[in-house]
Amino acid sequence: MKHNELEKYTISFGLSLAITSLFSALLVILKELCEHSVLVWMGKATGHHWMTHGIIDVVVFVALGWLLGTLNGGRGVSISAEKFIKTVVGAVVISGLIIVGFYTVDMMAG
C-alpha cells in the first residue's frame, strides 16, 4: 500500500455507507408515499416499520461493505482519498437533506 492510500475496508464500508444512506432516505419517501403497501409490509415484518427500516439499513451496509471489498480480485475498489471523502460526506449530507426536505413538505401539505 502506498503512503497515503486508504485501506480496503475503509473504502468499501465508506462507499457502502454512502449508498446505504441514500437508499435509506429514498426508502423513507417510498414507505411514506406507499403507506398502504410498503409501510404496512414493513410494519408487519418486525412489528414496527422503523425496526424493519433499521434492520434493512444495517444488513445492506454490512453486505455491501463486504461485497465491495471483494471486488478487483479481493483488492477492493480503487478511488482517490479526496474523491472518497467527497462521495461519503456528500451522500450523507444529501440523504439528510432528502429526509428533512420530505418531512417539511409533508408537514406543510398537511
Binding site: 486508504l6 455507507l17 444495517v58
Partner: peptide
C-alpha cells in the same frame, strides 16, 4: 430516520481509525 445514518457513521468510525493515522494523512 437521521439516527439510522448516525448509527452507520459511528459503526464506520472504528474501521476508518484502524489504519496508521500517524503516517497516512488521507
Amino acid at each position: 430516520h437521521l439516527v439510522l445514518m448516525l448509527l452507520l457513521l459511528t459503526t464506520f468510525l472504528p474501521i476508518t481509525a484502524s489504519g496508521n493515522l500517524v503516517a497516512n494523512k488521507s
